[in-house]
Design a binder for these strands. Structure first.
Lengths: 345, 345
DNA sequence: CATCGGTGTTGGAACGTTCCAACTGTCCCT
DNA sequence: AGGGACAGTTGGAACGTTCCAACACCGATG
């Protein structure tokens, strides 16, 4: 058990101190600590010993300054509460680490203003690249950022912006898979709980409308959002608005988190899932497996990994043309979707 | 729509460039950009204009180096996949921002070795303080870290280590609340799905054993873990081991994520919750509200906020004695717990 | 008219590294 | 004996900022 005495944190030793103790020059210490082959075995041993004894710790800020490189990338994530983003982040971390980069993670808390501020901070910290995992910025904002630093966008296709690469699934296709799945089960009255006013939600909504049209079915979009509570509310509205229309027999929800909320709403309304109503989510986060919810899945970690790989590639070759990678989207059928209650005409 | 031409990222302008353009010295530019009152209105205007025109962006690494301050704290988080940590992080971010600090977030991916590496990185980046949100380090490791930088630990009580503050709930009390709740409902056969081999799990397990003893009941601990899948497996084992003993009528689970897994296991076994078996989680993450799972709740965001506040306080006053803050723990009764199936003797 | 105080402004030193050109040996070759 | 190659080592410049002491200028004051 370490003693409770509070010995003052003294000034950190520098290369200079290590050099003095080892009886060599600071340059040699620098070389030795970076495993240069030009250092003799004797010097190396003395230096390592001295560094150890002093508790030397290299100063990255100084190193970054002189090298004009930070070996770090910035990652901006829309909302840490959504486990989807944690899964994407896994891939980003893995790839960054593999390339010898560390990551600076920030969140904008879904507010455009703080989002910009946080990104500004990253730029001032001189990150060498930027990964935006979902964002609320305009194309112009992105272009301005990319003029300063290579950028990769995840979950949304960017095109035509210099130095911006992107990785995303195919939202229209995904929604078609969802609609097809439900239609195959026999549903004809399928409502879509949208994700609110942002690009991804719009794409998913459009995909839904198209797919419904392709089956000759009437689309019904209920405004919602990407959180459990918004999903809950939208689902509640959709399923209880039964005075005029009959309620839908299936809900295709904008994302997984909202689908969890939708499931909760059905439970509170006393409706059986999938007996009375089917629910399908979107994203494919791990937790949905335990919850047995059908979803349109994307390879999340892989998306993060690919974005980071693209970014590293671009850091090495700034002027490479912009790339978009589209990842496979597939339906994972689980217990929350089944045939509609009574064979509707 | 911005043009696709790839104009090379040219060298970033420095204070010097701004000074030249504004026709003043670099010192004055530095003062003006930091809103010093000693700068004349005319100079200030010229400088701001020049900075704007050049797209000047201050270099934080240089600034940190000379100031010997980074205005940033490091945050280490055990596992980003657990939404509990995102909620704690909210509080940390809020407090850090309020004090004018930015945060560097890293994860160890629940592996002790990489955990140490990541923390080393933070120290090399010269963070001014460290917040550990759950960790796997030994007391000696923590003491060594705290010798370099003020440290605050969340979710675990530290005492007697110099320069380490901590914030946690009361795990023993929490488990007693859980057991009491179930006993009050009429349960006598209550199993605990543990969280694995780590301090928090041990404390919760011990709390459970004590509380059971206080009611004169036989404890039954089933080894598990903190993830959905580990919760699933442990619950499956607990509920299906019915050849010898009768299965328990209630499961008190080590954390919320595992409780979700446990719920899934019951569903797959065809058991009704709470009709056949009750489930109680631990932590109080938001998602459980939607899932209607009873849990022992802690004020997560508040824990993060308090930890950050303590840390800031300590950064200002290094030698303050160590503090531990205990936050309130309370039971949130929801739909996953109810009376046992048949009145057992 | 010399001195003072105050307001703006300035150049240089410092922060802790890395990079570079230059230096010292030592050994080998002609 | 003189030179070249090479391994090992060195001091100084640089990175972009902040801090500090000092300066120039002005009007007011004795």
């Amino acid at each position: 058990m370490p003693p409770t005495v509070t010995e003052p944190i003294r000034k950190r030793p520098t290369l200079h101190d290590v050099a003095a103790r080892a009886g060599v020059s600071k340059s040699l210490v620098s070389l030795a600590l970076r495993d240069s082959p030009k250092v003799s075995a004797a010097s190396r041993a003395a230096i390592l010993a001295a560094a150890e004894e002093l508790g030397y710790r290299p100063n990255r800020t100084a190193s970054s300054l002189v090298q004009q490189r930070t070996h770090s990338i910035g990652v901006h994530i829309l909302d840490l509460h959504n486990p989807v983003f944690a899964e994407i982040l896994d891939g980003v971390h893995e790839a960054a680490r593999r390339h010898g980069y560390s990551t600076l993670l920030v969140t904008g808390n879904a507010d455009r203003q703080t989002e910009k501020q946080e990104i500004t901070r990253l730029l001032e910290s001189r990150v060498e690249g930027l990964i935006l995992i979902a964002h609320r910025l305009s194309d112009d904002d992105i272009a301005a950022i990319a003029a300063e630093v290579p950028t990769a966008v995840v979950t949304w296709q960017m095109d035509g912006i210099a130095r911006v690469d992107s990785v995303s699934g195919d939202d229209r296709l995904g929604m078609r898979l969802g609609v097809d799945h439900l239609v195959t089960l026999g549903h004809r009255s399928i409502a879509h709980l949208s994700g609110g006013e942002n690009r991804i939600s719009h794409a998913r909504r459009d995909g839904y409308v198209e797919a419904m049209a392709a089956h000759g079915l009437e689309p019904r979009v209920i405004p919602g959002g990407f959180t459990e509570s918004q999903g809950y509310r939208a689902a509640h509205e959709a399923a209880s608005s039964s005075q005029d229309d009959p309620p839908p027999t299936a809900l295709l929800v904008a994302n997984d988190l909202a689908a969890i909320g939708a499931l909760a709403a059905m439970r509170d309304l006393g409706l059986d899932v999938p007996g009375d109503i089917s629910i399908v989510g979107y994203d494919g986060m791990r937790l949905l497996e335990a919850l047995d919810i059908t979803t349109v899945a994307q390879p999340l970690a892989d998306m993060g990994r690919q974005a980071a790989d693209l970014l590293m590639e671009r850091i090495d070759r700034l002027d490479r043309p912009s790339v978009h990678r589209r990842v496979a989207t597939e339906l994972r059928s689980r217990g929350s979707s089944g045939p509609p209650p009574s064979p509707r005409r």
